[in-house]
Structures are given as structure tokens and as C-alpha cells.
Design a protein around this nucleic acid. Structure first.
Length: 190
DNA sequence: ATAACGATCCAG
DNA sequence: TGGATCGTTATG
């Protein structure tokens, strides 16, 4: 199946966010692991008070200032990793946070990493899915046009897409920059 | 040098 | 509803 090219990512972040829904995230680990994206949030530029780029270029967020189609993974709350894809062209800092997926391949490893038998509980949250896939900050800055981490399009068409406020932030919570597939049971809990 | 806090999760 | 837990950033 063909990988999504850099052109897919280097567009307005809200466009990318909505089109990420239904795409297949692939991590060529041992074994190959994958999941269908069902919930995403957009963080856009230095003027977005919830975006890591709001303080300008720092050591942590530098990858957001580079080209689109690169992973941005950061560590938070002393124990969780968050998976993002950098969007827009180099120079404009923005990214999409992947909040939930439907697990497809590598279920055994996910169950082991998450220490649960419940499939529904594997990847239905941004911290959970990184734990399930084994993704850490060591996987930040990976070029998604290469062969380790990338997206595939199998032609799946999500049904109705819902837009809501972003979750877990204080500033900028008025913006409806969270996108999810209506009725999908792998969307994160609230 | 130090302190506050965060794009979360889970137990009780 | 609160505690875990630590890197990042701001402030003195």
C-alpha cells in the first residue's frame, strides 16, 4: 500500500487533521504494528495558546518548526508520551496530536505493553496508544516518508466527522480543533 | 538554582 | 476526585 507523501502533511493543519481520520498509522517494529486513526487534535502556530510553539523555538519543540511529515513525540505528566505529526511547511510550527486509534496489527505486543486483555482499552487515549505501540521520545523527529513510521490509505471512508473543543488544556479551549469519527468506539473516554 | 505545571491515566 | 511522577520553561 502506498505511503502518504509529504504533500499530504504540508497543508493547513485543520485540513490535515480532518483527513487523518480513517488513515492507517504504521510502525515497522518487530512485528509490524498498525492502527486506524479515529481521533485527532490540531495545535497551530505561535498564536495558539495551547501549542508548544507559543514560546517560540525551544529545544523540545524544534521539530515543529521543520518540514511536515515528521513525528513529534514528547513526554508529559512524568509518565506519558504523546504522538504528533508535524504539519505545514518548514518555518510554520504546527502539529496534529493523535488521540486514539482502532488497533489493527500487532495486537499481541499491544496487550503485553498495556498489560490488559481488553482490546477497547489499548489505544483509546494519547498516552495509552504510545504505550501500546512502545513509542517514546526516542521516536521523535522520524521522517514519515521513510520506512519506519508512516501512514497508509486503504480507501476507508469515515462516516460523520465531529468537531469539538480540545481536551485537557486551559488556554485556547474555545477553539474546536478536535476531530473524531462519530460513534467510533475507540475514541478516548471523557 | 529552584519551583510550578502539564495536549494523562487509573484507582478508590 | 486526587495522586503519581519528571522534563520543560519561567523566574529570581
Amino acid at each position: 500500500m502506498p505511503k502518504l507523501p509529504r504533500d499530504f502533511y504540508e497543508r493547513p493543519t485543520l485540513t490535515v487533521a480532518s483527513e487523518l481520520l480513517g488513515k492507517i498509522f504504521v510502525f515497522k517494529n518487530m512485528p509490524r504494528m498498525s492502527g486506524r486513526i479515529v481521533e485527532v487534535e490540531a495545535y497551530i502556530g505561535m498564536d495558539d495558546p495551547a501549542c508548544h510553539a507559543r514560546f517560540g523555538l525551544t529545544k523540545r519543540n524544534s521539530v515543529m518548526f521543520g518540514p511536515g511529515g515528521v513525528t513529534y513525540i514528547y513526554f508529559i505528566y512524568g509518565m506519558y508520551n504523546m504522538l504528533n505529526f508535524v504539519t505545514e511547511k518548514a518555518g510554520f510550527p504546527a502539529a496534529c496530536l493523535i488521540r486514539a486509534m482502532e488497533p489493527l496489527e500487532g495486537l499481541e505486543v499491544m496487550h503485553k505493553n498495556r498489560d490488559t486483555d481488553v482490546i477497547m482499552n489499548l489505544t483509546n487515549g494519547p498516552g495509552k496508544l504510545c504505550n501500546a505501540f512502545g513509542l517514546t521520545t526516542a521516536h521523535s523527529g522520524i521522517d514519515m516518508t521513510k520506512n519506519v513510521i508512516f501512514l497508509e490509505d486503504d480507501g476507508y471512508k469515515p462516516g460523520k466527522i465531529i468537531r469539538t473543543e480540545r481536551i485537557g488544556i486551559k488556554n485556547g479551549r474555545d477553539k474546536k480543533w478536535r476531530f473524531l469519527i462519530d460513534g467510533n468506539k475507540f475514541v478516548s473516554k471523557r
